[in-house]
Design a protein around this nucleic acid. Structure first.
Length: 318
DNA sequence: AAGGCGTACAACCGCGTATGA
DNA sequence: GTCATACGCGGTTGTACGCCT
C-alpha cells in the first residue's frame, strides 16, 4: 500500500516553531478545531506541514498539558507501566493526564532508563542485568536469583504495596464499575485518587483494549494473604499463570465483566484477591500474553518483606 | 573567556494501521 | 477486496543550554 507523503516539502518551514506560529495555530484551533491536519496549515496560513502542526499542538500547545517536573507518583506509574507494556508511550501517557507520549518518552530516555541501568536493571525487561553487563558489582548469583537482588526487591516491594492498596480499593470500586464497565469513571487526575485500582483502569484503557483484542488471551492474577514471601515458582498452565502477593483481609466481593468471547472475573474474599482475565481457547495466543505478564509480575512480586523500597527513589539512586 | 562535553527536549522521520472511496 | 489517504506512534536526530576544564 502506497503511503502518501507527509506533506509537500517545498516551501514549507521546518525546525523550531516561533511564538507567532504558535499563536496562529492556537487561534485557528480554538476557532475551528483542528479538523483535518493535512488541510489545517493551508487554512490557518502556516507554512508547515500538517504533521508538524499536529505534533506541535499535541506535544506543546494543547491547553491541558501539564508542565513542570514529573512527580514521584508519575515516575512510579511510568516505571510500573513500562515494566508491563514496554515502550508503548501513548498507552502510558493515557494513564498520566496532562503528559504527552513524547514527554514521557524523553523523560524515560534521559532519566528513568539511566536510573534503572545504574541500579543494574535491564531497562527493557526491568530484570537484573546479566553479570556481563554494565554493572560491575552485580554478582553472578544475584543475577541468577532476582529475589536476592536488592534493587529488584525495591521495585517488588513497592509493587506489592500498590497491590495491597489496590486490592483494598477494589472492594469499593468493582461492584459499581464492573456493572457499568462501558462508562467506568476515569479519574481526571489520578493523583487525586492515589491507589485507584490499576487493574480496573488498565482494563478500561488502551492497555485493556490490547488485552481484549487478543482473543484467547488468558491472564490470571491471584493474591492471597500470607506472611511468607511469594513463591518464585508460581504455577503456570495452558490457562494462564498465577502470581501471589500479600494483601489484607477483605470482605467478600465478586464481580464479572465480559464480552462475547472474553471475560474478566475478580473477587476479593477473606484476604484473597483473585482477578482472572480470560477467554477463547487458542493456547498459542495465551502463551504470548503469559510471557510478558508473567515475567514482569514474577519479577516484581518475588521479594522478601524487608523495607528497602525507599532506596529506589532515594537521591543516590539517580 | 573559550572550547569541549553531556544533557534535555523539541521536532522530524518512517512505519503501521484505520478509514473511506 | 483493493487502493489511496490520513493519522498516530515509536525511534531517532538536531540543537539549545549548562557545566566543567
Amino acid at each position: 500500500m502506497g503511503r502518501a507523503p507527509c506533506c509537500d516539502k517545498e516551501g514549507l518551514k521546518r525546525g523550531p516553531w516561533t511564538p507567532e506560529e504558535d499563536d496562529i495555530l492556537v487561534d485557528f484551533i480554538k476557532k475551528h478545531g483542528h479538523g483535518s491536519w493535512r488541510s489545517l496549515p493551508k487554512q490557518a496560513g502556516l507554512l508547515r506541514c500538517g504533521k508538524s502542526c499536529r505534533l506541535r499542538w499535541t506535544n506543546y500547545l494543547r491547553p491541558d498539558i501539564k508542565r513542570g517536573p514529573f512527580t514521584e507518583d508519575e515516575e512510579k506509574t511510568i516505571i510500573q507501566l513500562h515494566g508491563i507494556i514496554g515502550n508503548r508511550w501513548a498507552s502510558i501517557a493515557a494513564q498520566l493526564p496532562g503528559r504527552t507520549d513524547n514527554e514521557i518518552k524523553n523523560f524515560w530516555n534521559t532519566h528513568l532508563k539511566k536510573r534503572l541501568v545504574k541500579m543494574g536493571l535491564d531497562p527493557k525487561t526491568h530484570s537484573p542485568a546479566s553479570p556481563f553487563s554494565a554493572l560491575p558489582t552485580a554478582s553472578a548469583s544475584a543475577a541468577a536469583d532476582p529475589s536476592s537482588f536488592p534493587s529488584t526487591r525495591h521495585m517488588a516491594q513497592w509493587e506489592s504495596a500498590r497491590l495491597e492498596a489496590e486490592a483494598r480499593l477494589s472492594r469499593e470500586s468493582m461492584l459499581f464499575s464492573f456493572c457499568n464497565n462501558e462508562d467506568y469513571p476515569q479519574p481526571s487526575d489520578p493523583s487525586d485518587k492515589p491507589g485507584v485500582d490499576v487493574f480496573l483502569r488498565i482494563w478500561n484503557s488502551e492497555i485493556g483494549e490490547s488485552f481484549r483484542s487478543k482473543k484467547g488471551a488468558f491472564v490470571k492474577v491471584e493474591t492471597e494473604e500470607s506472611p511468607e514471601p511469594a513463591s518464585p515458582a508460581s504455577s503456570s498452565s495452558k490457562h494462564g499463570s498465577t502470581v501471589t502477593a500479600t494483601t489484607t483481609p477483605n470482605a467478600p466481593v465478586f464481580s464479572t465483566v465480559g464480552c462475547e468471547d472474553f471475560e474478566c472475573k475478580s473477587s476479593v474474599s477473606g484476604g484473597m484477591m483473585k482477578m482472572v482475565i480470560g477467554g477463547g481457547s487458542d493456547s498459542s495466543c495465551s502463551n504470548e500474553l503469559e510471557d510478558s505478564s508473567e515475567t514482569s509480575l514474577h519479577l516484581l512480586l518475588n521479594f522478601n518483606g524487608d523495607d528497602e523500597m525507599s532506596g529506589f527513589f532515594a537521591e543516590d539512586a539517580w
